[in-house]
Design a protein around this nucleic acid. Structure first.
Lengths: 258, 258
DNA sequence: TTATCATTTAGTGAATTTTACTAAATAAAT
DNA sequence: ATTTATTTAGTAAAATTCACTAAATGATAA
């Protein structure tokens, strides 16, 4: 829990613990049952929705900062996380947009225009993907609101965050062909239909049903189990699991899916 | 030409004109006649070779900073330039490595350990590619040395620059399939062999000779001329040029090469 | 001067692989 | 038995690979 004293210390001494002028922003995508969503927040000192983000501790790696951020927001640790682009055009985050009055109302801590927080900032964009039904969204002292938005129904975002989302989604879709995905987003045992529709949803397009699984199986990423799922009055589909070893190896070294 | 007064002003007031804590580093690749090289520099205050880089003016975009840097080093403007990754792990640029004595000897300007230049810095990596035979390398007041190194013969680099080069080369090779390349690196009129060997050299692997050009021609990127080049006692190859319009359109929107 | 030669470009087509699509077999519950 | 979605099989089209042939060219030798 963040207290007022924490905020005060952050305003006054944050530049000693965090790297000034640099932040991260996270496009956190959430998947569940054919739906693709994006996590957005409303900051108390800013009107409108934007991507969650934050500063980087002087002791942590960029990806650790992103991971910490994502965990604080969603409660999920160690999910698929990738840097996609860094944004630094002047004027990308207009300092005039920072409403010091609003900030004071929200936190009870005064902030002046020459504070380290109100200066040109370059932001490293990360995207992450998880199962949104497993998340427990956290608001903090500085957050008015925090919610999942359907990917086709995202409101206009503050700063350059619209561009960030575009770039993040583009990178995600390109990387789908180069990294395995599914752990954390599918049940441990899943059917071919389930992983098929996961890929279709993330890519936003149809994939051929009869050839698609062959590639994953040929790569050894999927193992067929001697179990079936009962799905009512239909043929029971086989269950599959990821081959953990192949999966992590593919995460590390990449694969070619098509 | 940079004077001592310029350096003094940079040390004392640079943080007002540049964004502190953030820099760019450029992996500038050079191609010429089947050779792939990388531009390295030796900084006066640092032992060993590293990538050229610099700070970002508060008024310029990231890519503009990179372009300015590349132009200052090579004399070439507006070449193919791409952001590939941002590096920010703590300890990546050890401040102890900054030799203030060496700096003073080199510049005649004193610098203290609490100067804005000597602090944790996050660096945005760009790669560029050009024809190294057309470049005119520039040393400045802070540079001891500046030279092209064969890609297979790169000395160990300072900081995390070895990793940067690895990542840059990897991104370059991936992006070769998604962006057109060749302008500035080939003569205006070139043969299929020439562009073929360019791609092979950049990719570091063989490409099928009989199919390779078809893709470029099918995309409309190449136009066949009614001219041939005389190459001695052998059949004269046809000359080709890039279709400028298609080329720039492909640069903007990307293509799929294979 | 003419013929031969080595070498490179450029194209052809067969063999193979990949992809896209269709259809049939299968299994489960009613 | 019927219904219905899963799963596999099969096929045609497309793309790629590979090996080979033919054409072009100037140097060289006869």
């Amino acid at each position: 829990m963040i207290t007022k004293a924490d905020v005060e210390d952050f305003v006054l001494n944050g530049h000693l613990r965090y790297v000034p002028h640099v932040s991260i922003d996270c496009a956190i995508f959430g998947y569940h049952e054919q739906q693709l969503k994006l996590l957005l927040i409303r900051h108390k000192a800013i009107d409108g929705w934007c991507l969650p983000g934050g500063y980087i501790k002087r002791t942590e790696k960029l990806v650790e900062a992103a991971n910490r951020n994502v965990k604080e927001r969603t409660g999920i640790d160690n999910l698929f996380l990738q840097q996609f682009k860094t944004f630094g055009d002047p004027g990308r985050a207009k300092t005039e947009q920072f409403d010091t009055d609003k900030w004071f109302t929200a936190t009870g801590v005064a902030i002046t225009k020459d504070n380290w927080l109100i200066d040109q900032t370059i932001s490293v964009g990360f995207y992450a993907i998880t199962d949104f039904s497993k998340t427990v969204l956290q608001k903090d002292l500085l957050t008015d609101d925090c919610a999942w938005f359907d990917i086709d129904d995202i409101p206009p975002l503050e700063f350059d965050h619209d561009e960030m989302v575009r770039e993040a989604l583009h990178t995600l879709r390109v990387q789908l062909y180069h990294y395995p995905i599914g752990i954390n987003m599918l049940p441990e045992k899943f059917t071919l239909s389930e992983i098929h529709v996961l890929y279709e949803t993330l890519l936003g397009k149809k994939l051929d049903i009869s050839n698609f699984p062959k590639k994953l199986i040929a790569l050894g990423l999927l193992k067929k189990l001697n179990e079936k799922r009962s799905i009512g009055p239909h043929r029971s589909p086989h269950l599959y699991v990821f081959d953990q070893e192949k999966y992590t190896e593919a995460l590390r070294n990449g694969v070619v899916l098509s």
